[in-house]
Design a binder for these strands. Structure first.
Lengths: 342, 342
DNA sequence: CTGAAAGCGCTAACAC
DNA sequence: GTGTTAGCGCTTTCAG
């Protein structure tokens, strides 16, 4: 049997479509008796509004897209886990896409998606796209960018203070007496901004302590995964002058490095201390548990959704703002050893 | 400026809407000259079909929903990572939702989602829902269930042979000479079917080897996460007769257990051997790397999408089939120790 | 407070 | 081949 439509309900209740619509959406005030009549008809027919039609009529899709480079990177799935309920609270469904860091795909998403009416706005964690690409895109499209970046006048950015966090992570290592600290995850190309900020923090910490930076200890990786971390560590350990500490630009990289260190029979943190970035659950259960920079993921998720909906609802384009969520350093066994409190 | 519509294009090209639609969708044969004219007009106006309108018109949303209990469980995100591209290849977008194992929410999704026209079908990894709940739902709704389950006449199931895989995992431990093998992750309640199948395999392996099962070694957990695994292990190690091996019902549970074992200063696998289930990347980089049952995730993803689209395209309801993807046991250091090949 | 009716942008019979 | 046109199901202006 065909699904019941608004019109069917109206007919059964003996009112007009307009009234049914009002009841369903709680719009205009409706007299109690008609409300009851309509609701009875709705129940009787098992009526459910067709979202598609509703969206077509009012030009909204009721969906927001969240685009991340890789879904299986724990940081992103943990963030998504926080974003989805926030969006749902506000009546939005979340369309998820992963780009594998493919710039063409990312550009395509931004450009087409909006016009296609598939989603009303987008929360986007860029990887392949450089600032210039973004500048070209339609400034009226509701877009919130994840991660700190050099400012862009049109879109919002939500992230933590990468330079400061990285400085703190490095300083933590320096404070522990380490002097040959490797940094794994630098990315020199235009799309590696987040990585570059971390490198900046790493340098600052050295400068603050009056220590020189051994450029050969700054290792570049293409992605931010376990395999890259392990490969970088392998190279580092094969050198005549291996490092005595490692700052991984995210936890996954740090965990890959940790794996390699232990594989070689070295001790953590005695021989090599390790700190990561992101505070994914996996790091808490690693052996040993790794120290890390813990961004306030809930705040990031909440703010990103908030800002996006604000942009969607706003008639005129809002200026882009920069939101900094808080973060803190969590020292675990991988830097301070067994004695330390978890 | 208002976005260009089909009608605008038709006007500019001097043809009817019908023709433009034909060109856009490549439906009916169109003469070369008109095709060119229309395409030129499309380009000139920057026309993009409005997906919403198209969907409303032909009653399809072009979206499929993938519903998992928890997004931050690596197994699910790895699976999603495989599903998304498969769906995209077939022209579908993926709407992701997580239920937190909340039965009410899961039921709601199945019931409303379809009628709401938000998605054309659903790939669903049940957790809170029991078979009875599913039986009540509309059998014409295109639905593919993830994970092995006792058969249901209406829907497809895609998974690996849980009993056999669990038997193999347990037998692996027995073959290594272990005799007090704990099983962590049993779930006795109606919605814990997958867990129960694993327990069955665990028992079978013991029966095959002529070994008795110590019921007190079968530990129940509410969820399948690291914390649960760690808690279960803690209890196990506090006993006078701790186990000499552990079969974790998934890798996360096993990793939680591993963490606890090492925390106590015990050696793996010498004191306690550990095997997990799912083969998530995290397990390969754990210290030591954990042995596991590796399901063919790509096959699962591909089959699930395939079957779902088949159901969506089919006019009459298809009978439910049971698809078994392959799996294999991967022995790593957590059971066979250092000497073994990775 | 409620009814009538005009779309939202596209698809697909039904003609020509 | 291509034009005409009636919907898809809902929202919403404009009357009343």
């Amino acid at each position: 049997m065909r699904d019941a439509t608004l019109r069917d309900v109206a007919e059964l209740a003996g009112v007009s479509a307009r009234t049914v619509s009002n009841v369903v959406n709680g719009y205009a005030p409706v007299t109690e008796p008609t409300r009851v009549k309509v609701e009875k008809a709705i129940k009787e027919l098992g009526y459910r509004p067709n979202v598609l039609a509703r969206n077509l009529a009012n030009g909204r899709s009721g969906q927001i897209a969240v685009v991340v480079p890789f879904l299986d990177v724990p940081y992103f799935s943990e963030l998504l886990q926080a974003i989805i309920p926030r969006a749902r609270e506000r009546g939005y469904h979340v369309l998820i896409d992963q780009t594998d860091g493919d710039a063409a795909h990312e550009r395509e998403l931004i450009r087409r998606g909006a016009r296609a009416a598939l989603f009303d706005g987008m929360i986007y964690s860029p990887l392949g796209l450089a600032q210039e690409d973004l500048a070209e895109s339609d400034p009226t499209f509701p877009l919130v960018l994840l991660g700190e970046r050099s400012s862009n006048a049109f879109f919002d950015h939500v992230g933590i203070d990468d330079v400061e966090a990285s400085r703190a992570a490095t300083a933590h290592l320096i404070g522990l007496g380490r002097r040959r600290i490797a940094a794994i995850g630098d990315q020199p190309y235009p799309t590696g901004e987040a990585a570059q900020l971390r490198t900046l923090g790493y340098r600052q910490a050295h400068a603050d302590a009056g220590l020189p930076v051994d450029e050969s200890l700054i290792i570049q990786t293409l992605r931010f995964n376990r395999a890259d971390g392990a490969a970088a560590m392998r190279a580092l350990l094969d050198r005549d002058d291996p490092p005595d500490a490692v700052f991984g630009y995210n936890d996954t990289v740090a965990l890959g490095a940790l794996h390699e260190v232990l594989e070689r029979g070295l001790r953590v943190p005695e021989d090599i201390a390790l700190i990561g970035y992101d505070d994914i659950e996996e790091g808490r259960y690693a052996n040993p548990p790794i120290s890390t920079i813990s961004p306030d993921k809930d705040a990031i998720a909440t703010t990103a959704v908030e800002r996006l909906l604000m942009r969607i609802d706003s008639k005129e384009p809002l200026p882009g703002i920069e939101v900094r969520a808080s973060h803190r350093l969590i020292a675990r066994q991988s830097t301070v050893g067994r004695a330390a409190p978890a």
